[in-house]
Every structure is written in C-alpha cells, then in structure tokens.
Design a binder for these strands. Structure first.
Lengths: 153, 153
DNA sequence: GATTTAATAAGAAAAATATTCTATATAAAT
DNA sequence: ATTTATATAGAATATTTTTCTTATTAAATC
C-alpha cells in the first residue's frame, strides 16, 4: 500500500495522540472531516494502523522495576523454541520477548514492583521454564526515551 | 492513589483497546455510563492513564528491521551522561533508550528498514555521538511478544 | 442514634463527534 | 469524448461524550 504525505502526517499525529478528533486533524491538514475519516478507515483496513491503546504510567501502578533478561536455551530445535515461546507468552510480567541473534537467544522485558518481586518471578516462573540454559538480568536505572511512535519522515 | 477492582478492569480494557466506548465498558462492568466516565477522568487526572496512542504496523511502513544496541560510554560523569542522552533523544530511529546496570551503560531499541539502513544509521548518526566508548548490536530475528499493557492482577 | 458530609452512581439532557449519504471534481483508462 | 476509479466536500444522521440534576451509601460528626 502506498502512503502519501497526508497519510504519513495522520499516522504521526495519531501515534502521538489517538484522541485527536477528525475535526482537529482536518484543521491541521487542510482537509474536510470526511476526507480524514476515509483515510483513517483505509489505514485501519490495510492494517497500517493496527491498534489503539491507552498507556498506563508504570510508577502509578507499582511496576517501576524494569528488567531486561537475556536468555540462552539448551537446544535450538524448532520444537524447543516453540515450546519456550508458548510458555513465555503466558507470563504477565513479560511485556516483550524477542528472538535475537548473537550471544543469547531471547531478550525479555519484564515489569515488576521491585527487586523482591523480581527474585520471586525468577525463582517461581522464569527458571522453571523448560529448556532454559542460562539467564542474565540487566536492570533499568533510568528511562531516557520510551516511545511507541515510528517516525515516517 | 488507590485503585479498586473496577479501576483495574477499566485500565486492563483500555490498555487492550482504547476505542472501547463508555457504553461498552459500562455493560462489561455493570455500571452506568456516567460512572465509567467519571472513573476514567479521575484516572487521567491522576496520571495513571498517561496517554492514548495509535500503534502502527512496522512491516507496513518499512521499519521491520529492529536492533538492540548496547552502548558503553567513555566516562560516566553526569555531564557526559546528560549530553549523550540529549543527543539520543534527537534520533528518530531510536524509539527506546534505557540507562542500565551491568556490562554496558545503555540499551537502545532501533527501528530501520533493513541492514543497509542500519549501517547508514550507525556510521552517520550513532557512532558520531559524543563520548561513545563501544557499541554492540543484536538483531531481532522474531517477535514473540510485544505488548504495551501492564497486567494489574 | 440522628445528622452532616463526602464520594459514587444513575438517568436525562445537551454538546460534540463519528459515520453515512449524496454530489462534485479530478485524473487516469478506454 | 466517454467511462471508470478515486478522493473530496457538505449536509444529514447516528453515536458518543460530557454536563447537570438527583439519589444512594457509608463514613464522620455531633
């Protein structure tokens, strides 16, 4: 699908704040409300706009302790990977999990309340997963940037 | 601020899909539309709900190549950190940047179109930053889980 | 124990927004 | 020239958000 300059502007604006109304967008883009409406519907239908979500402040819900955990598996056959991935999906504390190249196999991003909670998570959940070889935890000290908006320029 | 069970349900539902209407939420929660409305306004005012955003499918906008880059600085004085962080903030390709404990100082999550674009990004942007000691790039092979929703149970 | 007070919720009314419908304009295709 | 497809605008309608008034409840005060 082709995205013109107006589509890109709409995407940038909605990535920043999805509560903007079509009227507000129509002002900014010098278009009619209908034109904006139709473009957004098209972007949704094509799957360019995949989801609308509310973001919650992790400090306010007691999940400020963020950990990046690098994981090595014992073996790398497809069935091992698949099984591990299915189990990770079930863990609420894990918001992100990526299969990666390099020294280890997976990067997990984990949100918990504090170090004690993380210890509990490791002992009762993470290290009980099948096929895990090793884990290495890196703790977030500060958040410099955390955006969900892909730049389209 | 105290969050009761209903607040948590609202947060879970809006983190999953912020387009749900107050009426829809009121059905699910056995409440009136006004009660839902008031609770959401309170959660926004208190900063628990911090933002509403549209998520864009990275494949559809040609940013499927995701890289985690570990960075070490040459020195760790406050002024060096601050300056580095200010420069990273300006880089559109970097969606996330965290100051972390461990072998390296920062983790960056970078979105580009392909390996060539990443090479270009490294050469012209990343490695020209002040105070950089070393970088180590890890490439995403597959996305197992990528959620923005913090579980509140 | 009766009476305020504060917090929450319900329902109706009003305001704002999203959505549909009809009509035009424009450029590409035949 | 004529058709076709695409994008847009404006008006009409449907839906949602927001406000306002009233009622309920539980805790706090006398």
């Amino acid at each position: 699908m082709k995205l013109d300059a107006i589509d890109k502007q709409i995407l940038e604006l909605l990535q920043e704040n999805s509560k903007r109304t079509n009227k507000e967008l129509s002002y900014k883009l010098n278009l009619s409300v209908t034109a904006v409406f139709e473009r957004i519907k098209r972007l949704e239908k094509e799957g360019v706009l995949s989801k609308y979500v509310a973001l919650v402040n992790k400090e306010k819900v007691n999940r400020s302790f963020v950990v990046f955990c690098h994981i090595k598996l014992l073996q790398h056959s497809k069935s091992f990977l698949t099984r591990f991935e299915a189990e990770v999906l079930k863990l609420d504390e894990v918001l992100e999990c990526y299969h990666v190249s390099g020294d280890y196999d997976y990067i997990l991003k984990i949100f918990v309340s504090d170090m004690n909670a993380y210890r509990e998570f490791m002992v009762t959940k993470l290290t009980t997963l099948q096929h895990i070889g090793s884990t290495q935890s890196t703790f977030m000290i500060g958040e410099v940037k955390n955006s969900t908006a892909i730049s389209l320029s």
